[in-house]
């Protein structure tokens, strides 16, 4: 494993835990898109079905289980425990506009036409756009709490580090996976606008608010 991959995983883990702790400590999920979190839970579930069929390493298995467990815990906090604080009116992105085309694409463009492979491909495509309901929510309300922006930054950083990891693996191991790379590039691009706002506002101590 190279350093970019490791820090990518850790950044991903940080994002997930930041969000979970934010909701838990503030007893509120205001400003958080429950729809994005459901999409991430679907992403982890469909991608990590190989937990049942193959063992790679202790690191691999434990990280997968932590990601799945945390994502379901987050969904539980939003839709059950702190449901009263959930801002459903602003979380109005139509997820079927993501799931249906992504599902179709996974059936059409995959490495192998088998159930597990199509679900893996589906999870890769879905992950690349799963943050859209959250970004849509921020664009609707025009602002985000600082801790929410840290969450988004770690999510975007994770993707950017994975891209570097793939460049590394291509040069040193001759390995590349076109499906993962294209989806990863798309996903990273979605964060670019946010990265700009994060650097120019949040890191200078200002709250992230969009011009009206």
């Amino acid at each position: 494993m190279n350093i970019f991959r490791l820090f990518g995983d850790l950044s991903h883990l940080a994002a997930i835990i930041i969000l979970l702790l934010k909701i838990w400590k503030s007893r509120s999920c205001a400003g958080i898109s429950g729809k994005s979190q459901i999409l991430f839970a679907i992403v982890f579930t469909t991608r990590y079905l190989d937990l049942l069929t193959s063992f790679i390493s202790l690191y691999n298995t434990s990280m997968k289980m932590i990601y799945i467990g945390c994502s379901y815990a987050t969904v539980y906090l939003i839709y059950a425990k702190f449901r009263a604080t959930y801002d459903g009116n602003h979380d109005s992105f139509r997820v079927e506009f993501l799931i249906v085309p992504v599902g179709g694409l996974a059936v059409l463009i995959n490495h192998d036409f088998s159930l597990l492979e199509i679900l893996w491909t589906f999870s890769i495509y879905l992950e690349s756009v799963a943050i859209l309901p959250q970004l849509f929510m921020i664009s609707k309300t025009g602002e985000a709490e600082t801790i929410t922006t840290h969450y988004l930054f770690c999510q975007g950083l994770y993707r950017a580090l994975y891209l570097i990891n793939w460049i590394w693996r291509f040069y040193f191991e001759g390995f590349f996976d076109m499906i993962a790379i294209v989806a990863g590039v798309v996903q990273t691009i979605l964060y670019c606008d946010f990265f700009y706002l994060y650097v120019t506002k949040v890191l200078k101590g200002k709250k992230l608010s969009l011009p009206a």
Binding site: R5, D9, H12, D50, S54, I56, S57, N60, M63, K64, Y67, Y162, R169, E173, F175, D177, A180
Partner: peptide, 10 residues
């Protein structure tokens, strides 16, 4: 093989 490489990633 390539499949193992891919499944190794999260």
């Amino acid at each position: 093989d390539d499949d193992d490489f891919r499944k190794d990633e999260l």
